[in-house]
């Protein structure tokens, strides 16, 4: 509806008139497909955090990021008040310590990234532009994986930096702990990739947003609980392979391998199931890479065939 005069025009023009604006054709550069995919990635990432949108998605995303940072904040506060070698949670244990937050984050954002474009019917507009079939899925996957850095690598890096700054002897601390930085980043990236792929893949199957959230959580949590349960009641050899059905366990095992911290059997560790599985490190790494790789391939396939 034309409800007002344009700036600089005489007000009070008759309703329904078409404003006399001369059309300017576009003679400039056209950047093509890569730029389009980049634009879609940037917008999806911004939308994942609710930027440019309403209060609810912002609250949800930043709320979960805040929760993921709580251990780091406490750690830093304690380190500042009483310098010493105090650790609430060590880098090896951090990701499983906040595992449920990571899962919630993946579930909430995956359902949003997939569901919004469908709910509003925007997809035909994307696919009538010069995008290839996989471009949309690649942008969405990359956006979710990048967003997940905020609840994985970022808090760990902040904690790492804080501990270093708070250390009594920064040089000694660096010599002792520098080797952990690689595994912190490497395992964080694996979590981002796997959770983003499985999260988006699952969300494409759910019609409604609430169902998508529940679905994504279930895909991570149900196998996790089942594997924990059966491995605690049975020590049959075949049961060892059950961990491969639980993405959360596989990713956890990858982290332990990277930190060279796979626990001994019955050492009372939270990761007893992985000790019990007693798989060679290489197998655990390959399993994790397969989860990430196959998950992404399937997610792209789903985007291609369901759009």
């Amino acid at each position: 509806m034309t409800t007002g005069a344009a700036p600089g025009e005489a007000p009070g023009g008759p309703r329904g008139t078409i404003y006399d604006l001369r059309y300017r054709p576009y003679e400039g550069e056209r950047l093509g497909r890569r730029f389009a995919v980049w634009s879609l990635y940037v917008l999806s990432l911004r939308h994942a955090f609710g930027l440019g949108r309403g209060a609810l998605p912002k609250t949800l995303a930043f709320g979960l990021v805040g929760l993921a940072f709580i251990p780091a904040i406490i750690q830093l506060a304690v380190a500042a008040l009483a310098p010493g070698d105090f650790e609430i949670v060590d880098p090896v244990g951090f990701y499983s310590f906040i595992q449920i937050i990571i899962m919630l984050f993946a579930a909430a954002l995956a359902s949003d990234l997939v569901g919004n474009d469908r709910r509003f019917g925007v997809l035909p507009l994307y696919f009538s532009r010069p995008l290839r079939p996989d471009d949309y899925g690649i942008a969405k996957l990359a956006a979710l994986a990048s967003a997940m850095l905020a609840v994985t690598v970022l808090p760990q890096v902040v904690m790492f930096a804080g501990n270093w700054l708070g250390a009594a002897d920064a040089w000694d601390w660096a010599k002792e702990n520098a080797g952990e930085f690689g595994p912190i980043v490497g395992s964080g990236l694996m979590i981002c990739a796997t959770f983003a792929a499985i999260g988006l893949l699952t969300a494409t199957y759910a019609g409604r947003r609430s169902l998508a959230i529940v679905g994504v959580l279930a895909v991570f949590l149900v196998p996790f609980m089942v594997v924990e349960a059966i491995m605690s009641i049975s020590d049959a050899d075949a049961v060892r392979y059950a961990i491969f059905f639980s993405p959360a366990h596989v990713v956890r095992a990858f982290t332990l391998v990277l930190f060279d911290a796979v626990p001994a059997l019955d050492s009372g560790s939270d990761d007893n199931v992985i000790a019990q599985a007693d798989m060679p490190d290489a197998v655990l790494v390959i399993a994790a890479l397969l989860y990430a790789g196959v998950g992404m391939a399937l997610a792209l396939y789903r985007f291609r065939s369901s759009t």
């Binding site: 576009y26 400039g28 550069e29 056209r30 950047l31 093509g32 497909r33 730029f35 389009a36 634009s39 879609l40 917008l43 440019g52 949108r53 309403g54 998605p57 919004n116 474009d117 509003f120 019917g121 925007v122 035909p124 507009l125 994307y126 532009r129 010069p130 995008l131």
Partner: peptide
């Protein structure tokens, strides 16, 4: 059919769609 994302402003939406057609930011 309706293809308007309700949680975006018109200006952001049209900017985004122009970029999707390769028009620089």
């Amino acid at each position: 059919h309706d293809c308007i994302p309700g949680d975006m402003s018109a200006v952001n939406f049209v900017v985004h769609m122009a970029r999707m057609s390769g028009i620089p930011a």
